[in-house]
């Protein structure tokens, strides 16, 4: 069976695309699946830093596409997970160095060898976004429970539909259950109601994410982290398993409502 290409995108910057990419890649790879993460944010690379692989880069995505190296040479194997690989972005070039058809060609090649190809899209709706979305089988839209991020997610979902790459799945990141309970943060229901697409995961705010990112160790490898558990659940849902959504609230208040909403189609 050929591998599946998923693109992680958001429109707005800083909502957790790179974190999601590193963690989903690590979660799938720790289940023994062969995974490659591609950093499509050319000129502003950081997936390598989050994975702690910065010092191993010899060749990058642009070298590979311009034929200065073979695919095997551009693949960096993770230091902890033998099934996880990274193709880093070039830091000294910009988005125009790669075209959508280059990405399609590359992903068609990688599909033969890997179970999952995960593309980390840059923020924005320009060339970099179109490069990241061109080869995808499934787009995963990351947003935070805040108005500006949701607005940009809506725009991105529209563009994904226009490129005929839909339907996109929704990942709501950095939820603070206490703020939601006090009515100071958009609730997951509010976000789903507006965006009207299928939910694939809810990730709570967790300080372990930041420490993991700084140390170059994805938080899914930390068994105690709640965000890590949420990302492991998303990885299982990507593989087609039914996993209940994490109870964000201790007494399970809005979770019950939420699961009911999802069962009725997310509307």
């Amino acid at each position: 069976m050929p591998g599946k290409v998923i693109t992680i995108t958001s429109g707005k910057g800083g909502v957790g695309k790179t974190t999601a990419c590193a963690n989903l890649g690590a979660a799938l790879a720790s289940d023994g699946l062969k995974v490659v993460c591609i950093d499509a944010d050319i000129g502003l690379r950081n997936l390598d830093v989050v994975l702690g692989l910065e010092n191993r880069i010899v060749y990058d995505l642009v070298d590979l596409i311009e034929g200065r190296c073979r695919t095997r040479q551009a693949l960096i194997r993770d230091k902890r997970l033998p099934e996880l690989y990274l193709i880093p972005a070039a830091q000294t070039r910009d988005k125009s160095a790669v075209s959508p058809s280059d990405m399609i060609k590359l992903c068609d090649e990688l599909r033969g060898e890997f179970d999952w190809v995960i593309i980390d899209s840059p923020a924005g709706i320009e060339r970099g976004f179109r490069n990241a979305i061109a080869p995808t089988d499934m787009a995963l839209v990351v947003t935070n429970p805040e108005v500006a991020a949701v607005r940009d997610a809506d725009r991105i979902i529209g563009l994904i539909e226009a490129e005929e790459k839909g339907p996109a799945r929704l990942l709501i990141n950095r939820i603070k259950p206490n703020m939601v309970k006090r009515g100071e943060m958009l609730s997951p229901e509010d976000v789903i109601e507006l965006l009207a697409i299928e939910l694939i995961g809810l990730v709570p705010e967790d300080e372990n994410v930041l420490t993991g990112t700084n140390r170059g160790a994805p938080v899914v490898l930390n068994g105690k982290s709640r965000a890590g558990q949420a990302f492991r659940n998303i990885a299982q849902r990507l593989r087609g398993e039914k996993v209940p959504f994490l109870a964000l609230d201790e007494n399970g208040g809005f979770l019950g409502k939420l699961t009911r909403m999802i069962r009725t189609g997310g509307r």
Binding site: D152, D154, G158, L159, L194
Partner: peptide, 24 residues
């Protein structure tokens, strides 16, 4: 369909939408 942020329609007649018109 749902009209999402960034979508714009200009039409000289009437416009009927079945679906939501989102902010933007």
């Amino acid at each position: 369909r749902t009209l999402r942020s960034g979508f714009s329609i200009q039409f000289p007649g009437h416009v009927v939408v079945i679906g939501d018109v989102n902010p933007g």
